[in-house]
Nucleic acid binder design. Structure first.
Lengths: 211, 211
DNA sequence: CTGGAACCTTGACCCAAATCAAATGCCACA
DNA sequence: TGTGGCATTTGATTTGGGTCAAGGTTCCAG
């Protein structure tokens, strides 16, 4: 019924336009959904973290390219049995609707980020999102001093935030210079004060209930 | 069971955070979902056109401010009976899932627009979207010479596109100067060649099947 | 330990879009 | 037929982030 697939960082899971005969749930690692303009400009349009769902019921063609941004483990189901499961089991269908609505809300926050936030606010917002996701997995609220493992290259961050990788690098340096973050190697970020980071992100919400 | 509500252009349907005891379907006119940062920066995060759905099942608090951008007619259902309908009737629930997935896809195209397109491409993309929506309602494909009724002020366009209203105005003037569009008053746009407009939008897809 | 490639940082310069500031056009209504 | 109030256009100037171009790190393979 279900089976697992593993991908290395940078590996493509499916190309936009490819036939996709499975749906999946992210078990570990991180993946990005990506769109491109013909001239090569690239924008990430979805970020898949553990527990997120991949694939669209009722459509067997991938609309976006999916790339592992870190080592990735997927728990896959063949499309046909999964769709039957949805029809037979309204509870699962309703759960899927709820997840999709959550994704839509996340996409709408992202629209605000891309449309109106400055480069610095974008970086801070991304760090807040990653911190919240990491905390949610262990059912705690992020607070005080926290450490974030960045499962993204600077380029992937830029694709997510609608920036260039140079701007990402410069803003990370600026945040470090001002003591908002500390860097331990390239991929580990230490946040001395989470509230300070939230302030920098321009976003004032409390992240909602822990669900 | 169902009832209608009318709003004038500019009127607010619900404020973010308000309790919302109904869900609705757009019958006529247009509305925008809007998010704001504390300092007033505003980004539209959803565009509701006839046949679109408003409200989230299972949540009675509006997450976004909804404003009529033109005169608007909603067909409303009280939340409780509607949610019961969803549980009793899997066909409707499945249709709602499909609509939500379509909205998510639209939001993702929008992310690409906000993150990577130039001001000119953004304007052209918006006109393409409106032209396609207008054409879809009469089950035709947009082609050749078409007329678009803009149900948006320049400011609302700017909020949609992540631009300032001055930039919107300048780009509209530029497109007019170069013969891509003609203006008849402020709110009517004539597109002599739809393919030319699509070229300007940077988007190369054909708009998909008419469904 | 060492070489090299991939990834990241930094600097100099440039440009698209924002900002600030007037005009101008367009109705609705007296 | 004005006239007041918007919405829109246009102009001048500034600026945040992009582009181009070097360097510097990190980390793994040998």
């Amino acid at each position: 019924m279900k089976f697992y697939r593993r991908y290395e960082a940078g590996q493509v899971v499916v190309w936009a336009g490819d036939r996709m005969d499975f749906v999946a749930s992210v078990v570990a690692g991180m993946a990005g959904l990506t769109q491109q303009l013909e001239d090569g400009r690239t924008q990430m349009v979805g970020l898949l973290l553990p527990s997120d769902f991949l694939g669209r019921p009722g459509r067997d063609m991938a609309a976006y390219t999916v790339t592992a941004t870190s080592d990735l483990v997927l728990c896959c189901f063949r499309r046909k049995p999964f769709e039957k499961l949805l029809i037979d089991n309204p509870r699962i269908a309703s759960r899927l609707l709820e997840m999709t609505l959550d994704e839509l809300d996340a996409a709408r926050d992202w629209l605000l980020l891309l449309g109106r936030k400055s480069a610095r606010e974008k970086i801070a917002s991304l760090l807040v999102i990653l911190a919240r996701r990491e905390a949610a997995l262990i059912k705690r609220r992020p607070e005080g001093r926290i450490t974030i493992e960045l499962p993204l290259t600077r380029e992937a961050m830029a694709d997510y935030l609608g920036l260039t990788l140079e701007t990402v690098s410069r803003q990370m340096s600026a945040l470090k210079r001002e003591g908002v973050i500390e860097l331990d190697g390239k991929r580990r970020v230490i946040v001395p004060s989470f509230v300070r980071l939230v302030t920098e992100s321009g976003d004032d919400s409390d992240g909602g209930p822990l669900s």
